[in-house]
């Protein structure tokens, strides 16, 4: 991605989102912006207008094992583009932090339909509830699973 394209995308995002952007990390192939929870859908719509047409993955991170600990989950949407040849090699990441006590987030399936299964996986591995998701059920874990979501840091594996 050329320098002018990066600056254009960043300026459009700043214009559209304003002060709800908390953090920016700009690299040649990866751009990461951290936004507030309320501005997530707006950011996704902006990116879709800019040419990012699908989600490559949804990542959840439990930040409670950091030093110093942070009582929050971070959810990242990695978006890419099939149609725009200039954007095709690049990934843009939209991240947001939500408190561990109330892990709720608006679902982005209305904007990017390809993040449906990724959100389901994040739901079962972290217990993050995506409001507005068409089918928020468990995807990969066994049917008899009754413990807390396994990728949370306070989960204790059974061992032997």
């Amino acid at each position: 991605m050329s320098e002018s394209k990066i600056t254009r995308i960043i300026s459009e995002l700043r214009e559209g989102l304003g002060s709800s952007i908390k953090e920016e990390k700009i690299d040649k192939k990866i751009i990461k912006i951290t936004v507030e929870r309320d501005a997530l859908v707006r950011a996704a719509q902006l990116l879709k207008e800019l040419g990012y047409d699908h989600v490559k993955g949804v990542t959840g991170v439990d930040l409670s094992a950091l030093k110093p600990p942070e009582n929050a989950f971070e959810v990242m949407y990695h978006a890419g583009s099939h149609l725009d040849p200039e954007l095709a090699g690049s990934v843009i990441t939209v991240a947001t932090k939500i408190p561990r006590d109330a892990p709720e987030l608006p679902s982005l399936t209305q904007v990017w339909p390809s993040c449906e299964y990724h959100e389901r996986e994040t739901y079962e591995m972290f217990g993050i509830i995506f409001t507005g998701h068409p089918k928020l059920k468990r995807l990969l874990l066994p049917e008899w699973w009754s413990d807390i979501p396994p990728l949370r840091k306070d989960y204790k594996p059974p061992g032997r």
Partner: peptide, 9 residues
Amino acid sequence: AKDSYNVIQ
């Protein structure tokens, strides 16, 4: 071993 949630030990 030991720290997996779904692998038989």
